[in-house]
């Protein structure tokens, strides 16, 4: 049931990509038609039909799509934001009613998470988005076409970066299959002396941070670093696994806050918020992450013994 709903949602995501393809193809003044069309077409096919295509073929499509992105041939089209006067006029006309569709998306996700856990927040997010679109179109008399045009405006700004989180997840899977984690854990074991619990905790926590920063994913780092460092250097000495295990994971989250590899948290928001500095979000997170790492090392030491 949930999977069927998700496939419909992914199809809509794919459809949005196809619309960008159509707009790009019919845009006479587009600066880089071919690359842009290839990128969004491939992404659309994978999003809409990925489940029904053999994984190896999807892999080929991903390489083609990434090739277009790498050669810098994916460029935004020419759809400007509505002028300030128009936005002000609509704001005066609609008033606080505009918050109804704005909140509909999040609230529907919450309702689904609580009352329909079998479908979950993601399905709720999808249905909430459709609801919000319907409410908006009745309120503003905007056509479905202008909704799609607005989508193109924003997605053009995000561009190929939108695929980075999924590519990084794939990279993590290749690393795991290749056994990269074992090599790193083995190296640490050769260098670090065993026996001092505090040193063990520091190595475990910092190891989680560094490996998360490289992999971009605390979950992937956790399984590797816990087996390679956490167990032989900390847990073996009888510390509370409830405290050590959980805090090691959140030490990893400190790494997530500091790495461009965690693209969906740190890089995609830069694009969605249309910021200039690619590392702007990370820069405002690093001090928090470092303080939290130190705090957690001491919490682990005092709470787990």
């Amino acid at each position: 049931m949930k999977n069927n709903f998700m496939e419909v949602i992914y199809f809509i995501c794919g459809f949005v990509c196809f619309y960008i393809v159509y707009k790009t193809a019919t845009d006479k003044n587009h600066k880089s038609k071919v690359g842009t069309i290839i990128f969004w077409l491939m992404l659309g096919i994978i999003m809409a039909f990925g489940k029904y295509i053999p994984p190896k073929a999807v892999g080929v499509l991903i390489l083609i799509m990434s090739g277009a992105a790498m050669s810098k041939q994916v460029k935004p089209g020419n759809s400007p934001l509505a002028p300030a006067e128009y936005r002000k006029k609509m704001s005066d006309k609609l008033g606080y009613k505009i918050f109804i569709p704005a909140f509909t998306i999040g609230v529907t996700a919450i309702v689904f998470a609580i009352f329909l856990p079998k479908l979950g927040a993601l399905v709720g997010l999808g249905i909430g988005t459709i609801l919000a679109a319907v409410i908006l179109m009745t309120m503003t008399k905007d056509s479905p076409k202008s909704v799609m045009n607005e989508g193109q405006r924003l997605l053009d700004a995000v561009g190929p970066l939108s695929t980075l989180p999924q590519l990084l997840a794939s990279l993590g899977a290749i690393f795991t299959a290749a056994g990269v984690g074992e090599v790193i854990a083995g190296g640490v074991q050769k260098i670090v002396p065993e026996g001092n619990v505090f040193v063990g905790i520091v190595i475990y926590a910092v190891g989680m941070v560094l490996f998360t920063m490289i992999m971009g994913n605390a979950f992937a780092a956790f399984s590797v670093i816990t087996v390679g460092i956490g167990v032989p250097f900390v847990l073996k000495y009888g510390l509370d696994p409830n405290v050590v295990g959980m805090l090691a994971l959140t030490c990893g989250y400190c790494g997530t806050l500091m790495t461009p590899m965690a693209a969906n948290f740190n890089i995609v928001p830069v694009a969605i918020l249309e910021m200039k500095d690619k590392y702007g979000v990370i820069k405002k997170q690093v001090p928090i992450a470092i303080i939290m790492l130190v705090v957690q090392i001491f919490l682990m030491y005092f709470m787990a013994r």
């Binding site: 949602i9 949005v16 990509c17 999808g126 908006l136 989508g151 939108s162 969605i272």
Partner: peptide
């Protein structure tokens, strides 16, 4: 990539 359908709204 669910934001693909979110951004138009």
């Amino acid at each position: 990539s669910i934001f693909l359908m979110l951004l138009p709204v």
